[in-house]
Amino acid sequence: MITPVPLFNYFGFLLDPANWGWSDGSIPQRLVEHLGYTVLAVLIAAAIALPIGLLIGHTNRGAFLAINIGNAGRALPTFGLLSLMVVLMGTGLVPALIALVVLAVPPILASTYAGIRAVDRSAVDAAVGMGMRPTEVLFRAEVPMALPLIMSGLRSSTLQVCATATVAAYVGLGGLGRFLIDGLARNQYDQVFAGAVLVAALAIALDLAGAGLERAVVSPGVRQRGSARRGRRRGARSTDTSTQEAPTASTAG
């Protein structure tokens, strides 16, 4: 029979000031490690997936192969892949990063490709017809228009990696996974609980940061949520019988 653990115990680890100093195995240190794995994995994945996604989106060639390889990567269980990497390469940061990068690539690749393909063809035709060279078409027209989707791919990839980076602890690395594994091993459920809460909190913080970045880099004219889109719908229905017509949408919103 399981004796229920008193509620306050869940927060014991999390609220203990001793765990918030900067020392080996403290909460701030584990947070920084976890953040480090996440950011590193997403950056490497972006460095791989963005150029490929842009290329296949722009040329519309090789999409089938790239997207399917990407999706196969998504289907691989990260823990299984990590175990395989450890068998092949031994423990350390590299096998853990490889496992996380394989997880992070597919959302970025798929959304970058889809974003570029979803760009209004008439705008691209205009870009070419006005004398933009291929790289100018890509970076001055297609990428800015595809940014909302590209950004959402980066954000969902970041979330997945942040949640999964706990596996690093299984191969002797740090990060918030340590609290889960060590806590389970020692029956210290308040530590397990702290690990879970901290992973969730970090994921939320990263997603908020992603939203901020998205606001900063995505033009208001193509932002998915918000005024511009409402304006487009309204604008599409309205007719202008004169140039003096009332504005179809305001920027307030």
């Binding site: 008439s122 705008a123 006005m130 004398g131 800015p144 004219g221």
Partner: peptide
């Protein structure tokens, strides 16, 4: 081609404006 096109104005059916600009 690019130099040629910059000397030729081009207008299309749905305007083809850049939504991000």
């Amino acid at each position: 081609a690019a130099v040629l096109r910059r000397k030729i104005g081009y207008v299309i059916q749905h305007a083809g404006l850049f939504p991000h600009r």
